[in-house]
């Protein structure tokens, strides 16, 4: 250690004690190979045990550690101190969500939305296990693979102004996951999902800001899922209007 320090200004909020969130400043030893999460853990262990935040895998895959870093939603286990040093770094909870405490947000709303898009395989006829797997070619896999990469980190919700203004909006990740199952060659449940995706709270709320795709750490591209769902639903609607019964 060479004595250099990095300064983090962290949002604190303790219900019952703080009326509104406040900012608290901490200095940590500066280490070139530390990510922001390492600095938070250092504070928790050695300076202030009251700081609350979520984390687990520290390898960018569990989706726990999303926070605003200098105003941009990031996985804190995947951004380095050195990208900001020697500037001070502002750490805030993800925006657009209610705050439980400090850097911990309430995301229970997302879990309801996720369930509402029926993120599971729906079949008209089930194949028995003894009959083996459903065949799926690498091309069929690539039709939806990108949209399976979502780690539910909520960065896209923090980046979405529509969600900020309209919390009822299903939002990027939930729509991307609904779309993922619609595109899966094994699935036959598209119709029952379109009702939710195409509802008032669904895809039509989106006005193509595109920030969700920008901030997504896993290259899921929820914006594309939303736009493509719009086209699909419109196509389905035209078909249902134009084609006589039975031919759809």
């Amino acid at each position: 250690m060479n004595g250099a320090t990095a300064t983090l200004n962290i949002t604190r909020y303790l219900p019952g004690q703080d009326q509104i969130p406040r900012s608290q400043s901490y200095s940590v030893p500066y280490q070139r190979d530390w990510v922001i999460l390492d600095a938070l853990n250092y504070i928790k262990d050695h300076i202030d045990g009251t700081l609350s935040y979520r984390w687990s895998c520290r390898m960018g895959v569990c989706g726990s550690c999303g926070m605003m870093v200098n105003g941009v939603p990031k996985l804190t286990c995947a951004v380095f101190l050195r990208d900001f040093y020697p500037q001070e770094i502002r750490i805030e909870p993800l925006v657009n969500f209610p705050i439980i405490r400090d850097l911990v947000i309430d995301m229970s709303d997302f879990l309801d939305k996720l369930k509402s898009v029926k993120p599971w395989i729906i079949r008209k006829t089930e194949k028995q296990i003894s009959e083996g797997e459903y065949l799926q070619t690498p091309e069929e896999l690539s039709a939806y693979q990108q949209f399976t990469q979502c780690i539910n980190c909520m960065l896209c919700y923090a980046a979405c102004p529509v969600y900020g203004m309209e919390p009822e909006f299903l939002g990027p990740a939930a729509i991307a996951l609904g779309y993922r199952y619609n595109q899966d060659s094994r699935d036959q449940g598209k119709e029952s999902r379109q009702a939710v995706l195409g509802s008032h709270e669904g895809i039509w709320q989106c006005t193509f800001v595109g920030e969700c795709t920008e901030v997504c750490p896993k290259e899921v591209d929820p914006a594309a899922a939303i736009q493509r769902s719009k086209v699909e639903i419109t196509k389905d609607w035209f078909k249902s209007v134009l084609l006589p019964w039975g031919q759809r």
Binding site: P15, G16, P21, V95, N96, P98, I99, I100, D106, G164
Partner: peptide
């Protein structure tokens, strides 16, 4: 679920 009355709802 977190108690709604204890949550802080930030305004944009």
């Amino acid at each position: 679920r977190p108690d709604k009355s204890m949550l802080y709802y930030p305004k944009m």
